[in-house]
Design a protein around this nucleic acid. Sequence first.
DNA 1: AAGAGAAACTCTGTCGACAGATTAGCTGTA
DNA 2: TACAGCTAATCTGTCGACAGAGTTTCTCTT
Lengths: 228, 228
Amino acid sequence: MSDVDASGTLAEQLFHTLTEAILRGELAPGAKISEPVLAQRYGVSRGPLREALHRLQERRLIVRSANHGARVVEPTPQMLASIFAVRETLEGLAAKEAATLMSDDELAALADGVRRHERELQDSEAGRHNALGKADEDFHFRIAQASQNPLLIDLLCNQLYPLLRLYRSRNDNSSLRQRALAEHKRVLSALCDRDPEMAELTMKRHIASAKVRRTMALQTCSLSKSET
Amino acid sequence: MSDVDASGTLAEQLFHTLTEAILRGELAPGAKISEPVLAQRYGVSRGPLREALHRLQERRLIVRSANHGARVVEPTPQMLASIFAVRETLEGLAAKEAATLMSDDELAALADGVRRHERELQDSEAGRHNALGKADEDFHFRIAQASQNPLLIDLLCNQLYPLLRLYRSRNDNSSLRQRALAEHKRVLSALCDRDPEMAELTMKRHIASAKVRRTMALQTCSLSKSET
DNA sequence: AAGAGAAACTCTGTCGACAGATTAGCTGTA
DNA sequence: TACAGCTAATCTGTCGACAGAGTTTCTCTT
């Protein structure tokens, strides 16, 4: 059932396990985190658990207040907007750098990924959406890596992308997915041309349009909920 | 001697205290962090200390490896370049947003800060450099706040600015400081004009030129050191 | 019956102690 | 004298336990 992280310490394993649990929704947004309960669930003591929780706090996945305990962070439209504003500039930077720094092998791999993405989109018109989400994340992940900027890579891959998964919805139709794929192709094209400015521009446009898609999905999704 | 953080938990206090200790150089870059030693120095047990260390790890101020302990992060020219590349885009974004969102009061306060900065630069030609560094950080801090983007504010004020202090040098002369002040005035001017694009451009230029200054200072500073 | 107050319970924050791993130092040999 | 191997000391990772703060529940009063 649960994959075993073979990472050294218990605190490290817990950190990854809890991250995944939150991002998969197993720990619901806004849910209170009881240290005794979680410690028993994962068969560890509260020591390593608390260490993992302090890291999750820095990653903005949980909110802690002294003597009151921790809660899973609650996604808000405002935070979604914040994330996308930051993401637009950072991914723009990554694409710009990637245009000059990406090796031919990396470019080929990226193109392969896009082709696979397209095939999956055609094959299963309403099939496994997991693979499609993975394909999208893979595209952005590769470009971030290609920037060769350690801080940028870390901010995108370890902070922003996980946060975004909190907002991921399953109800975007295939026409929207087609648009996203077309935008990926445009970015890829700019990268193949080794055109930094065009790569930056197409990427920023792609993120901006993804923001619109995500925001709409969030609104239609939260029609059934009320406010605090 | 040591300011007393009145924040709730010991782990929280330790987190801030250790952050300051690292940024002031009291804990030297590359120095090994001994949990028993630190725990005794601050009069706490290892529990809260370890929780603070895990947060510092996420903030990139220390590096931990399993069963080997933690070390204060060592500044490298590559990381300095990474920070400035990210900072340029993020502060550009902050300035762009601030141009439309900043209230008149906030603008007046920012202008006040710049005037005070200028006075201090004239008064003490070779005086207290602390106040000058504070004035510079204050300028960027205010603009970040004005963006009203929580994630952006947090990334800049709590992650990038602290990291940058690891590279701060005391040997930049007053001619360089004059240039920085002139650039601040240009940004301020664009903000007063409510011109987002100009604000973004002038800020990005300012950061780029600060990068050059800082990199030069780092090179001249590290002439006396050797590599590992 | 509704609300204020007190008591009991639960939880978080903190500490001291043990076990495995790592490092430093010592011994013996080539 | 230099180096390999072993031993001892130290440190990190983990656990269980205690104390104060917070929450819930029950009771007593109006």
